[in-house]
């Protein structure tokens, strides 16, 4: 049964990489059931992430947000700060797709705080880029400029000419 769970996870990932997102969802749902059976919270967390990602490409952003929230909750329980940061970044982007910019900002700020704590300059740069865009969408140009300048500083530091 444990091997079956891993096989479902691998199948889900393969369908995902092939662009078969419905099949990816079915496989990851099976993987999730088996992870729960075993109380394997890491596998459960991975299944939530994979399901969130697949729902993004299915255009079902509300479903993606629900799974990313479950990922975030488990990442906190498992005390995995890197995964917590990644979940916040995914939620920020998903709420941008949903055009809910206040919520997008809320999650991008959380991502920024963790990226700073982890001294992840690439993550910090991406958070600032995203925040600049979200504040622009809200017409808050002062905050938008603030984050655009931070993004510029970090991009220069990293030698990211693009």
């Amino acid at each position: 049964r444990a091997a079956q769970g891993r096989a479902y996870g691998n199948l889900g990932n393969t369908h995902y990489l092939l662009g078969n997102f419905r099949k990816a969802v079915s496989s990851h749902e099976q993987r999730l059931l088996i992870a729960r059976e075993f109380g394997d919270r890491s596998a459960e967390r991975r299944a939530y992430s994979n399901l969130g990602n697949a729902f993004i490409f299915l255009g079902e952003f509300e479903m993606a947000a629900e799974y990313y929230k479950k990922t975030l909750q488990l990442a906190r329980q498992l005390k995995d700060r890197a995964v917590e940061a990644q979940s916040c970044y995914s939620l920020g982007n998903t709420y941008t797709l949903l055009q809910d910019y206040e919520k997008a900002i809320e999650y991008h700020l959380k991502h920024l705080a963790i990226a700073q704590e982890l001294r992840d300059r690439v993550g910090e740069g991406r958070a600032c880029w995203s925040l600049g865009n979200a504040y622009t969408a809200l017409g808050n140009h002062e905050e938008a400029v603030h984050f655009a300048e931070k993004h510029l500083d970090i991009s220069r530091e990293l030698g990211d000419r693009n």
């Binding site: 990932n13 299944a47 490409f57 982007n93 991406r126």
Partner: peptide, 26 residues
């Protein structure tokens, strides 16, 4: 406004480009 909308989508598009190859492996 239209140009800002395009910029706004860009950071999300970059994320989605990365996401295409992002799988949590067993």
């Amino acid at each position: 406004f239209q140009r800002l909308r395009i910029i706004q989508v860009d950071s999300v598009r970059r994320w989605m480009d990365d996401l295409k190859l992002m799988t949590e492996c067993e």
